[in-house]
Nucleic acid binder design. Structure first.
Length: 217
DNA sequence: CGTTGGATTGGCT
DNA sequence: GCCAATCCAACGC
């Protein structure tokens, strides 16, 4: 982090979690590299009233250029434009008529590549998340991509936000798990690209989504 | 310009 | 396990 961007808070708290923001270079790699590396990181959301919500990322999925399961498989359009806007942007889209999904954009501008953030372990602001979700138990707050966006109040207003320099959503270095603690499998809810094991999760973590991977039909 | 189906969720059988 | 909810960009005609 550049010196003039130094935060007022300590770089590392008593918890051992690094509060340093992930730099642009972190995202300027392929999604399959970034996705497992995002596990254990701290996703932070600042609400309009200044409240800080956060959670530890426990589940991600990679979507690569040329990947038939990716929104980037088709030409750039109104919905997926942010996927082409370069590393460190937040790509937010709406689906199923109900839910917002949030992604960290990877690779240089012009290359559609992103990591879907699927689940976090709630850390700060759990009361606010519970209110937004209409659920009490921590395990129900952000254990799925739609739930995550609802809990953190993320919608189209955050599409295109800069995770590196923005003031409403970012990702801190946190505390990555041991590589042995990362499990990979096929992605959830897609009917193509099933040959790729691009869903990553913290093995055995109760905060990962309950969605079954594999073809629905 | 009408149709289609989706990177999901929660409630009900 | 099944399926409705509810929006909208992409695609086909």
């Amino acid at each position: 982090m550049a010196p003039h961007d130094a935060p007022a808070i300590p770089a590392q708290g008593a918890s051992g979690l690094s509060r340093r923001r992930l730099p642009r270079s972190f995202y300027d790699r392929s999604a399959v590299e970034v996705a497992p590396d995002l596990l254990g990181r701290t996703l932070v959301r600042i609400l309009p009233d200044g409240a800080r919500l956060s959670g530890t990322i426990v589940e991600t999925e990679a979507y690569e250029p040329g990947d038939p399961a990716s929104h980037g498989f088709r030409r750039k359009g109104l919905r997926n434009a942010t996927m082409y806007e370069g590393p460190g942007r937040l790509y937010v889209y709406f689906t199923y008529g109900h839910h917002w999904m949030m992604n960290a954009v990877c690779m240089p501008a012009g290359v559609p590549s992103a990591v879907l953030l699927r689940a976090v372990r709630p850390l700060e602001g759990t009361g606010e998340m519970a209110r937004r979700r209409g659920r009490d138990r921590d395990v129900d707050l952000a254990s799925g991509p739609g739930k995550l966006c609802q809990a953190l109040g993320v919608d189209r207003a955050q599409d295109g936000e800069d995770l590196v320099r923005g003031r409403t959503v970012w990702i801190e270095a946190g505390s990555p798990p041991d590589p042995d603690g990362i499990a990979a499998g096929i992605r959830v809810g897609v009917s193509v690209g099933l040959d790729k094991e691009w869903r990553f999760r913290v093995a055995g973590d109760p905060f990962v989504s309950k969605g079954r991977p594999g073809p629905p039909r």
